[in-house]
Nucleic acid binder design. Sequence first.
DNA 1: GTGAAAGCGCTAACAA
DNA 2: TTGTTAGCGCTTTCAC
Lengths: 329, 329
Amino acid sequence: MTAAAHRPATLEDVARIAGVSRSTASRVVAGTGFASPAARERVAAAVDHLGYVPNPAARALVRGDGVRLVVAVAGTSAAVLDDPYVHRVVGSAARVCTPAGVGVALHWLPLGEPGSLGQLARDRSVCGVVLVNTTAELLDAVPRSLRGRVVSIGIGSADVPSFDVDNLSGAGEVLRHLYATGRRRIAMVTGPEWLPCSQRPVQAYRQLMRQAGLPERVLPGDFTAARGRAAAGEALRRWPDLDAVYAISDETALGVIASLRDRGVRVPGDVAVAGFDDIPLAAMTAPALTTASHPVGRIAVAAATAVLDGRPAAPETLFPSALVVRDSA
Amino acid sequence: MTAAAHRPATLEDVARIAGVSRSTASRVVAGTGFASPAARERVAAAVDHLGYVPNPAARALVRGDGVRLVVAVAGTSAAVLDDPYVHRVVGSAARVCTPAGVGVALHWLPLGEPGSLGQLARDRSVCGVVLVNTTAELLDAVPRSLRGRVVSIGIGSADVPSFDVDNLSGAGEVLRHLYATGRRRIAMVTGPEWLPCSQRPVQAYRQLMRQAGLPERVLPGDFTAARGRAAAGEALRRWPDLDAVYAISDETALGVIASLRDRGVRVPGDVAVAGFDDIPLAAMTAPALTTASHPVGRIAVAAATAVLDGRPAAPETLFPSALVVRDSA
DNA sequence: GTGAAAGCGCTAACAA
DNA sequence: TTGTTAGCGCTTTCAC
C-alpha cells in the first residue's frame, strides 16, 4: 500500500501493473473462477502495491445486487425513526453490512400506505429490506419481487421470514414470577394496539389471568417512559387494589415506577413492577428493575445477515428471552 | 405507478415510453439541464406509469460520488461499535442519508492504526466519512483525498470540520451549580484518557477547582454504568469527605448513584451526583438526575448533512448544552 | 488458464 | 432543445 495515489486505483490499474487482463485480475480479486498461482501472486502484489480497494457500487451494478439494505419501520409518524430500539437495529445492521460493502438506509413506512414498499422493491440499489414493527396489512403488501430479500423483525408471513424474541414465553415467565410471589391484581401496559407483535404478550397475560381466575386489566402503551407515567396514574385510579404492573418495555416500567413513587406508592412493597428488554440501565435504577431479556442486537444481526446472504431463511427464528429477577418485582 | 413489472423499469424504459432519448429522460428525472415542457410532461407521465425509481448506484458510478457514508468510530476494540451513543449517531445519519440514496456503514478505527483511514479514502463507493471519538493522531492521518468529505463529531483539525456539543460550557454550568449549592469536595469521573473531547470538561473542572481553591479529584471512566459503580467505591475510599460526583455521562452517573445507594450513602443528601447527556431516562430515575443536555441527534444530522452536501463547513460547529436541574444535585 | 468484448443503469460532453 | 456517443468500474460469457 503505497502513499495515497491521488486517484484511487481501479481494477484496470491492478491488471496493468500485474501484467494480466482485467478479467484475470477480477477473478483473483473476487476470488471467483480460475487463475494460475503465478497470476494470483502478481495480482495480489499489485493490489497491495496500489492499495486497491474494489468499488462495491460498480460490482453491484453489473451483478444487479444493490448496495443498500433498507431498515423500514412502520408507524403512525416519522418520529418512529428516532426510537432507541430502531437505532439499535440500524447500528447492528450497519455493522454487519459494512464488510459486504453495503450501506444501511432508514425508511419510514406510513401505516395504511403499503404502496411505499413497491418503491423500495423497484429501487435497484436496494439489496434487501428489514421490516420493523410490521403489520399483517403491510406484510400482505410485500411485492413478489422483494421475496427472498425481505425479512421482518416482529411478525412474519408465508413470504417474509420473521426474526423475533420469544416474547410469548418471556412474558409468561415474568407473569408466573409475579404470581408466584403473591401478586394477584396485575395490570399490564401494552404496546401500540396496531402492532401485532405486542399482542403476543397480551395473549399470554389474558390466558394466565383467566386460568388463575384473576381480573384482566390492560392499558395501551407506546413503549415510552412518559406513557408509563400516565398509565400508572390511570391504573391506580381504576384499580385501587392494584398490586403489580407488567409493562412491555423497560422504559415504560421505569415511568410507571417514577409515577408510583411520586404518589407515595412503594415499589415493590405496595406494587411490584416488571418490564421487558433488560436495557443496561435496568440494573442501575432504584429499585433495580425485574425484567426479561431481549437480545435486540443479535436479532438485528441475524435479520440483516439473512437478507445479505439471500439464502431462504427459516419462516420463524425465535430468540430466547430470560427472566431477570432484581428488586422491583 | 402500474402493478409491479417483474423487472424494475430503467431510464431506458422511461425514455422509450415517453418517446424521447435517454439523455432527455435523464435531464428531466435528475432535474438538471434543459427540457421542453412537453418533454418534461411526457417523461413525468412515463415515470409515473412505470413506477420508475432511479438507481443511485448507477448514478454514483458515473458521477464518481459514492453510495455510502461511513461512520468511523475510533476505539481500543470493536466493542465501541455497540455503544448506544454510536447507534444514535448511525440512526440519525441513516435518516438523513436515505433521501439522497446513500447508505450508512459503520467502521471501527483501531487506535494507533491510522492506516485504516486510507482504505476508506481509496474506496470509491464511500462518499464521505464521519469520524467519532477522534484523536489528534487520527486526525493527522486523514488522507488529502478525503478532504472536503470528512467531518468529526468531537475534536477537529485544520482539514476536518468539527461538530460537537459545547461541553466546556456545559461542564462549567454543572460545576457552578454544584458549587452554588454548597458542594466543596467534588470528584469527577471522566471519559477514556485517550479521548480528547472528554478532556475539555476536565479542563473546566480543574480550572474551577483551582479558582475556588478546592482539591482536584479526577477518576478515569469509560462512559459506562459499570465504571460508575466502580468509580464511586474508589472515590469514597480515597476521599471520605466527598460531597459531590460529576460524571461525564448519564449512564456513569446512574452507576455512581446505584453504588452510593448500596453503600448507604444518600443522594443528594450526603453526596450530590450530576451527569452529562440528559438521556430520556434521566428524568425517570430515583432521584431524578441533574445533568446537562447533549443534542446527539442534531449533531449527527448536521455532521452527515455537511458530508452529503460537500460544501466547506465551518471549522467548528458547537451545539449548546443546557443545565437540567432535577433531584440528584 | 486467460483475454477480448459486451454491458449493468446512468450522466455528461458534444453535435445536431 | 434534443439525440448521439462515450464512458464510470466492474463481472462475465465465450473463444482462444
